[in-house]
Design a protein around this nucleic acid. Structure first.
Lengths: 208, 208
DNA sequence: CCTACCGATCGGTAGG
DNA sequence: CCTACCGATCGGTAGG
């Protein structure tokens, strides 16, 4: 799996400004105020440098957004492929796919918030690439649900509603989860993958 | 219930610009591009008037956002109170509370998108009022879940995770639902309230 | 409803 | 990494 903990690249710790530090600072501000609500001056100010110096470490504001949203979306699809490969049971595949997706939204909260709020601020060609990857992921989840319905493993119901509900439920984790909560990221992901199975299986009893 | 269909107040139909038409136009643009991504010039342009003329129909850009987000949030809380009043069964109360919340997000998509994306762009005192109302609604849903757990009607599990998952699943309807879809707003709301019961009841069988 | 205009801020560049 | 500066656009006002 392509997970790693959020890289704590801050100015204070490293002492110097670098492309990674600029990206991390922008990520925090974009998540807090949105892409259009963040100015390059604010990014510079937080790094205690002037605006023009920022351009030694980035191509521009739009480039930062493209890197954040593009990288994250590619990783989401990669996670799905890796975690469902070589598994027979459709129930187990859905459980694992939801688990990694939920886990990512607990571990990479800032990225998730920016991806979901500011995707429409992306310029081409990254916009089209990102939308295509998201569509592919949603269709893959929907396909799993439909496969389970066809095999009578899941309750007979509209697969599209199930996949939307399950995916967006996971996305929302980024909006309320805190590391210092009573639950770990893994516990939350485990619980949410259970919710997904409950929704999918419907009247079939699910062990808690 | 405080529902009505989305008021189709467009410039073309009414022929004249009014505060309601300006608000409706701003609502569409805010939903499409975000509050910070929309300029007052764009609002004016869509109404085929000049920017200064807009100020005959509004106090300012921030005032439009406050009206959209403030009104919607107050209605959400009012819906909850009205729909759960005088009902004994905790299961039925949760089902109805989720139904109206989901239904609103299918019927008032633009409002829902703006409320959830641009709430942080609100200025005081409306910001505090809105956050308090949202907190109250979330705690009320969580309270219902806990009440059901205590009564052994729902599975024993963290009530906070259930309430977050259920509420955000509903919020997301605004992002994918279209009136011309294969499902009506009522059908989607019905299905989502069923999902909520499945998550809450867990290992208890739920009739489809 | 308009023209004319305000100061502030935007992302970004020149040049060192 | 900086100062100095660019044209464009921002939300909003004056005055009619």
């Amino acid at each position: 799996m392509a997970f790693s903990l959020d890289p704590p690249v801050s100015r204070e710790e490293r002492g110097v400004v670098s492309p990674a530090v600029v990206l991390d600072t922008a990520l925090t501000l974009f998540a807090e105020r949105g892409y259009h609500g963040t100015s390059v001056k604010e990014i510079a100010s937080r790094l205690q440098i002037r605006t023009p110096s920022l351009y030694n470490h980035m191509s521009g504001k739009q480039g930062l957004l493209q890197e954040i949203v593009g990288d994250t979306t590619r990783e989401v699809w990669q996670d799905f492929v890796e975690v469902t490969a070589g598994i027979d049971g459709v129930e187990e595949r859905l459980e694992k796919a939801v688990y990694v997706y939920a886990l990512r939204h607990a571990r990479r909260r800032r990225e998730a918030i920016v991806v979901n709020r500011d995707v429409s601020s992306l310029e081409e060609p990254v916009l089209s690439e990102v939308l295509e990857l998201r569509r592919r992921h949603e269709h893959a989840i929907r396909g799993l649900v439909q496969e389970g319905i066809d095999a009578s493993v899941f309750a007979d119901q509209p697969a599209s509603l199930v996949s939307f509900a399950v995916l967006e439920m996971c996305v929302s984790i980024a909006r309320w989860f805190h590391v210092d909560d009573r639950f770990s990221a893994e516990e939350v992901a485990k619980q949410y993958s259970l919710y997904a199975l409950r929704i999918a299986k419907g009247d079939v009893p699910v062990k808690a």
